[in-house]
Design a protein around this nucleic acid. Structure first.
Lengths: 196, 196
DNA sequence: AGACGTCCGTAGACACTGTCTACGATGCAT
DNA sequence: ATGCATCGTAGACAGTGTCTACGGACGTCT
């Protein structure tokens, strides 16, 4: 009859509550006091573990980064040895994450709500970008372009599609039924047309 | 000795104050009361013209969209008849706007702060996208790809570069001195390598 | 066993926010 | 001059993040 997750430490309970909350009601619902209420404690309690509102939000966002990194890593692992396939799998995984966990994805890139130092950007985003560079280098070894540049542009493209599609700017203008054609166009553009 | 813009109507004075404010102090400073203070009126005054905080922010953002559209239009007009040049000019203009007016640019795409219907999205963003589609179609007439798709992907790419570069995620990972190489890579990718 | 000290959460205050409502003041039309 | 509509003021209300003082529970040492 013990109330759920009542006996674990408050620190992770708060983050759990925040993850649920952003999932159900979006970024706007992530007030410090609402998270505390959700966790069943008073509004001053979080201060013991998170000195500021932003630090709590950063911890919540970190969960998102970890989830995304795991999901993307799994997608890359399924097509070992085929860089091009790995890249498309990575891209699709990223987009799926953005469209499935909308609130969390928005939070993760609302850098005005995050402590850009403490957050899991260095620890999760950078290695992920490193593998992206590596995959790009192996997917098009003949090209003279610098892989870092291509990877950066591709990353921005991917992010832009996820973002713009997420809030409806693209389906209005482009008029397709899903973001997949855009993703394919971006991949073809940055990696060269697919060989088959 | 008349205080500057004291005699114009309050409606536009409020928007002016907001534009200045977001320029100087960023999106976070755009509270209703602070804008009212800046315009020299009480905190209840804006309600006469803007029923809600979001509607005022939307009016401010509209100024940004108008400015961006004007700037981009001018850039396109300088290279009439050369679609490829027009596209690169458009892209550079867009990026310049994003990096010069950082606060405004952030506001313009914070759709949680904007009334997505009333705002100048339909009136400014859509025609701009239409010219983008047109330019893409003329810049690569031989390609079999649908111009709308290519234009959508390119626009997402452009937006992604502006956004990611704006908050420093890219220069950290890619390690170049400016966003220009990324822009060039994106244009080359989506439009095919430049002929010279 | 008793006293002490540290940890952890509560509760209240403060300044600030957006929204709403009641109230004047101003100027124009009849 | 009288009425009226327009416009801005001022106060209240619920909500927010941060800060500080307080209480209670726990373990350790003498």
């Amino acid at each position: 009859m013990a109330e759920r997750e009542q006996d674990t430490d408050l620190r992770s309970r708060l983050v759990d509550a925040g993850v649920e909350l952003v999932d159900e009601q979006g970024v706007g619902a992530l007030s410090l006091r609402e998270i505390a209420r959700r966790a069943g404690v008073s509004h001053g309690a979080p201060r013991r573990y998170f000195p500021t509102h932003l630090s709590l939000l950063s911890a919540i966002a970190r969960r998102g980064f970890e989830g995304l990194a795991a999901q993307a890593g799994a997608a890359v692992a399924t097509h070992e040895g085929e860089p091009r396939e790995q890249l498309t799998a990575l891209a699709h995984s990223w987009l799926d994450f953005a469209l499935t966990n909308r609130g969390m994805f928005e939070l993760m890139f609302r850098h005005d709500l995050l402590e850009s130092n403490h957050l899991g950007l260095r620890e999760t985003s950078l290695p992920l970008f490193a593998t992206l560079v590596d995959l790009v280098a192996r997917a098009r070894p003949d090209s003279g372009a610098e892989p870092r540049i291509v990877a950066g542009a591709l990353w921005a493209n991917l992010h832009g599609i996820a973002q713009l599609w997420g809030w409806g700017s693209l389906q209005l203008a482009v008029g397709v039924d899903g973001p997949r054609p855009l993703l394919r166009a971006a991949l073809d553009a940055h990696l060269g047309p697919e060989v088959r």
